[in-house]
C-alpha cells in the first residue's frame, strides 16, 4: 500500500467519521435548530447580503452598482470628517469603555455585599438609566440658558457669571455626551455581572473561610474574580459594542451634526451618509471599518482576559 492510498482512504474515512458524528449528535442539532432558523434568516442572511454593499454605489432607489474599492479610498484619503470621527470615536471609547467596565464590576460587587433585600433596590437604581429613554431631561439639565439645571446651580453658587452653552460650545459637547453615555452604560454587562455574583456557589465561600480567607478583599481576589470569567467576558464584549457604536446619545443630546463635529462618531458618520444622504454603499463601507476595529479590540481583550482567568 503506498502513502497516497492511505491519504485517500483516510480522507474518505474522515468524511465518513464526520457524518457518523453528525448522526450521533443529532439531538444537539435538533435543540439548536429553533434558535438557528430565526438567527440565520433574520441575522446571518441580512449580514451576508450587506457584506458586498461597501464595494457598491447604492442609493436605495436604483440597484447597487459595483465601484470596487473607491468607497474605501475616498474614506481614508479625502473624507476629512471621517478621519475626525475616528479620533472622536477613539477618545469616546477610551473614556467610556474602561470607566464603565470598572464601574459595572465594582458596583455589582458592592451591591452583592449588602443584605439580600437591599440588593434588588440598588440593582434597579443603577440599571434604571439604561432602561429609561430620557434625553429630553438631559437637554434641560444641560440647557444653555439660565434655566438649565447645571447653569442655574453654578450661577447660584457663584462659580460662573454667564450661562455655559454645554450642548453647542465645541469645548463641551463631547464631555456632555460622555457624561450621559456613562450614565446609561450600566446596562447589560452590569446585570450579567450581578447574575454572575448570584451564581457563585455558597460552598466556595465556606471553603474559603476554612482556608483562612478573612476580608472582603481576599474573598474578591481569590474566590469571586476567578469564578466570574464568563460574565467578565460577556461584559467586555457588551462594553466594546456600546462604546464603539455610540452615536444615538450624541444625536439626541447635542444635535446632528454637532458643533464642529466635536461629538461626531463613526456611527454618526454612517448615519449621516446612510439615512440623510442615502449613500448606502458608502455608509456600509464606514460600518465595515468600524467592525474591523471592534473585532481587533475584541481579540485583544479576550486574549488579556483569558490570560488572567485560568
Amino acid at each position: 500500500m503506498s502513502a497516497g492510498d492511505i491519504g485517500k482512504r483516510s480522507k474518505k474515512e474522515e468524511r465518513h467519521m464526520l457524518w457518523q458524528s453528525v448522526k450521533k449528535n443529532k439531538v444537539c442539532y435538533l435543540m439548536l435548530a429553533p434558535f438557528m432558523i430565526f438567527f440565520v434568516v433574520f441575522t446571518i442572511v441580512p449580514v451576508i447580503m450587506s457584506l458586498p454593499m461597501g464595494f457598491t454605489d447604492f442609493n436605495m432607489v436604483q440597484p447597487p452598482e459595483f465601484v470596487g474599492l473607491s468607497n474605501y479610498t475616498t474614506l481614508f484619503l479625502s473624507d476629512k470628517i471621517f478621519i475626525r470621527s475616528i479620533r472622536v470615536t477613539i477618545v469616546f471609547a477610551l473614556f467610556t469603555g474602561p470607566v464603565s467596565y470598572v464601574l459595572c464590576f465594582l458596583l455589582a460587587w458592592l451591591i452583592n455585599e449588602l443584605p439580600p433585600k437591599l440588593r434588588t433596590v440598588f440593582t434597579l437604581i443603577f440599571y434604571a438609566p439604561s432602561m429609561a429613554n430620557v434625553y429630553t431631561v438631559w437637554q434641560l439639565i444641560f440647557s444653555g440658558d439660565m434655566n438649565g439645571y447645571i447653569n442655574s446651580f453654578l450661577m447660584n453658587a457663584g462659580l460662573i457669571n454667564s450661562p455655559i452653552q454645554w450642548l453647542t460650545d465645541g469645548n463641551y459637547v463631547l464631555g456632555a455626551t460622555i457624561v450621559v453615555q456613562l450614565w446609561i452604560s450600566l446596562g447589560a454587562g452590569f446585570l450579567a455581572l450581578r447574575a454572575g455574583f448570584q451564581n457563585i456557589d455558597r460552598t466556595m465561600y465556606e471553603a474559603g473561610a476554612i482556608e483562612g480567607i478573612r476580608t472582603r478583599w481576599q474573598e474578591l481576589v481569590y474566590i469571586v474574580i476567578p469564578s466570574m470569567g464568563p460574565q467578565l467576558m460577556f461584559a467586555a464584549v457588551m462594553q466594546i459594542v456600546s462604546s464603539f457604536t455610540a452615536g444615538t446619545v450624541a444625536q439626541n443630546l447635542v444635535g446632528f451634526p454637532s458643533t464642529d463635529y466635536k461629538a461626531h462618531t463613526i456611527m454618526t458618520h454612517a448615519y449621516d451618509y446612510g439615512w440623510v444622504r442615502y449613500e448606502m454603499g458608502y455608509a456600509a463601507a464606514i460600518c465595515m471599518v468600524l467592525f474591523i476595529v471592534m473585532f481587533a479590540m475584541n481579540r485583544l481583550i479576550s486574549r488579556i482576559l483569558s490570560r488572567y482567568m485560568d
Binding site: V241, A270, A284
Partner: peptide, 27 residues
C-alpha cells in the same frame, strides 16, 4: 456539547454582536 460545527457557531455568535451596520435593516 462538542459536535461538528459547534466551534464555528460559537464564533459567529460573538462576531454577529460586533457587526453593526446600518445596511442590515434594509437587508
Amino acid at each position: 456539547c462538542r459536535f461538528p460545527g459547534s466551534r464555528v457557531i460559537n464564533g459567529i455568535i460573538v462576531i454577529s454582536l460586533l457587526y453593526q451596520s446600518n445596511v442590515i435593516y434594509i437587508m
